[in-house]
Design a protein around this nucleic acid. Structure first.
Lengths: 368, 368
DNA sequence: GTTAGCACTCTCGGCCATAGAGTGCTAATC
DNA sequence: GATTAGCACTCTATGGCCGAGAGTGCTAAC
């Protein structure tokens, strides 16, 4: 058990702690009060605001117990209590009553998606925007990409100035483009200059040979091809490889200013590290193993995060898409003092929604 | 003259003010000191640090004159002087000695671009990253887009699950994609289901009919087409129209945390408005008329900006690409207390560089 | 087990005094 | 006539001090 806690500290780490009825309700009240006010909460305030039917003194002793258990902490001797990361954890695991999105919210979100044309980038932007708005946190959405990019279809377009564009549609429906090196092409054309006909021929060849192959598989077949086709195939292989670098791609964020507004980050420089991490491409990769384990929404609270710069924030993330196919991540980032009961269902709903959108326009694995 | 100043307050507004030699060097010194230290600069400090060969008293009287002219200001009676927006303006226009990028910097930047494969999104990202790093400000880069999107080439791809993707290459080389509505297609196929052959035929038709046409022109020809082709043409027209909404598209930013670090924005909430504006799509559109007027780099200092939220920041922006063809913007955003002598040449250099990259892989206007 | 009472602790805001930086003015100097 | 030294003055920033208030922990009574 101990090892398990160590290995995956941010999943059900606090399960074993048994609390009395009273302790539970006090912890819940402290968390909810603190999330709302951002002010350390004292015993008197607590009974006043939550209509607990006991005296402040009783609450105090309960608080002392919770502090001993490491669920609350004390900024200083004569201040109120603040939940610890572990306190939030327990709250999220067993104390919280999720505030599910009501029907109208769901419909409104759905409606917004239906308004947007069916281009996936717009979906992502919209998802980030909705997440940010309805959780008042920073939202992060990555495109759904195959862990292993596969060839779908290519097109070679010649343009007036003799530039050539290679447009590659991946098996998962994403589109990549790259310009072909002109000098290289000149070298390959032994006799006549290369025309659109030649390009069409190459495209047709590759489109029969390559569908559904991964980068190394494409590479392996290059040797069989004529010089021009071989060159294009090489370029395609490179493009596939680049796509393999999951989520190094674009990360769509929104609502960073929401977080900036939170008192814990009022002194902006505190957020600096977080922003830098967010910009770095590899940040989600580090979390990927955790986030894709099991189903559904994952909550990573403060120090549970393996990334140092993120010790003062919580993440609520969910994967969407299909593990073997296109897999994306989406979620929110905010202070540990986060409205979990609201944010978690929202993330969950958006993940299922994106799932739907992805799979209804789903690209099969056996093309042609 | 007066009207002209009003109409374009951020271009050479301060030209007419004549300063004595001494006033000039004092203003220059104040600006440069303040940019460096972010502390209001007093007369003693100034002579010490800049080795002026006069006494503090002399400097004081010069400062008083400059303040009378509205070039400096006083946070309070017994504090040092701070440049006003107008002071910065004069500095930028005539006092500043530009710190041109030296050869090695230029080569390093060029090298980084050569490392990146020729996909334009990566260029933009890289440009933003370089700008942010070498000016320590927030960088903003928009893709170069035609003011008027024109048809280049389309490809229709059928995938295993019968999804159809329409990939549109614009005349300026940008690529757009959209999924075709399946239900609609079913309705259009009177007898047999639509296969790749049919799609190819449609694509071929449009590719001979439409090249270099704008959205309305495409629309006008729809009536001549068979139902399926007409539907696709309609979709294409929509895609062209969407592309016409300049820069509503993606804006690549980087280095926001640099700005967050500046003392004037240490209390993060001050930056909030700026961030919100930055996220909004229309912010550059408002500036577009100004930024494309004349050649080269444009500097917009504090209150010169027509956008209220940006009264406390300076922008240094330049267009790149070609006015009639693909036009993009790039630049930096930082506090008015900005290292102009460094930032301006950097923006200029990156604009010319992007220009080169765009035009060497340039797409002609008369396709086919 | 719960609660009232009480002494104790700690922060926060206001107040004051002081130090220091900087100014503006005037009169002397080059 | 420009420059400078000297000086009185102003304002901020800093630190110490005090009292109010919030909150705790403990103990004894219920």
């Amino acid at each position: 058990m101990a090892e398990e806690q160590k290995a995956q500290p941010h999943t059900r780490g606090a399960r074993r702690i048994e609390l009395t009825e009273r302790q539970q309700s006090v912890l819940r009240a402290v968390v909810e009060d603190y999330v709302l006010t951002a002010v350390p909460v004292g015993s008197k305030m607590l009974v006043d605001r939550h209509g607990l039917r006991v005296s402040p003194a009783t609450v105090r002793s309960a608080m002392a117990e919770l502090e001993f258990l490491g669920l609350l902490s004390h900024p200083h001797t004569s201040a109120g209590r603040v939940p610890s990361d572990l306190g939030y954890r327990l709250y999220v695991e067993s104390l919280m009553r999720e505030a599910a999105l009501d029907r109208t919210d769901q419909l409104m979100i759905r409606h917004q998606f239906s308004q947007v044309q069916l281009t996936s980038n717009e979906w992502l932007r919209l998802a980030a925007s909705i997440l940010a708005a309805s959780t008042s946190s920073a939202a992060v959405v990555t495109p759904a990409r195959s862990r292993r990019a596969r060839y779908g279809h290519i097109q070679l377009v010649e343009l007036a100035d003799r530039s050539r564009l290679c447009v590659l549609v991946l098996a998962d429906g994403n589109v990549e483009q790259r310009r072909l090196d002109r000098a290289m092409l000149e070298r390959l054309s032994t006799d006549a200059p290369i025309g659109q006909d030649d390009l069409d021929l190459v495209a047709a060849t590759l489109n029969t040979e390559m569908p559904n192959l991964s980068a190394p598989q494409v590479r392996r077949r290059i040797s069989r091809l004529a010089p021009l086709a071989a060159h294009v195939a090489e370029v395609v292989a490179q493009m596939l490889e680049e796509s393999d670098e999951v989520s190094v791609e674009e990360i769509f964020t929104d609502g960073i200013s929401n977080v900036l507004e939170q008192p814990e980050f009022a002194h902006g420089s505190k957020l600096r590290g977080v922003l830098d991490v967010l910009r770095r491409s590899d940040f989600l990769e580090q979390l990927l193993p955790v986030l894709t384990r099991g189903e559904g929404v994952h909550v990573i609270i403060g120090h549970e995060n393996t990334i140092d710069a993120m010790h003062e924030v919580s993440l609520i993330f969910a994967p969407y898409g299909e593990p073997d196919h296109a897999l994306g991540l989406l979620g929110v980032l905010g202070p540990t003092r986060m409205p979990y009961p609201r944010a978690i269902p929202t993330v969950r709903y958006l993940a299922t929604l994106m799932n739907e959108l992805i799979t209804t326009t789903h690209y099969g694995e056996t093309h042609d």
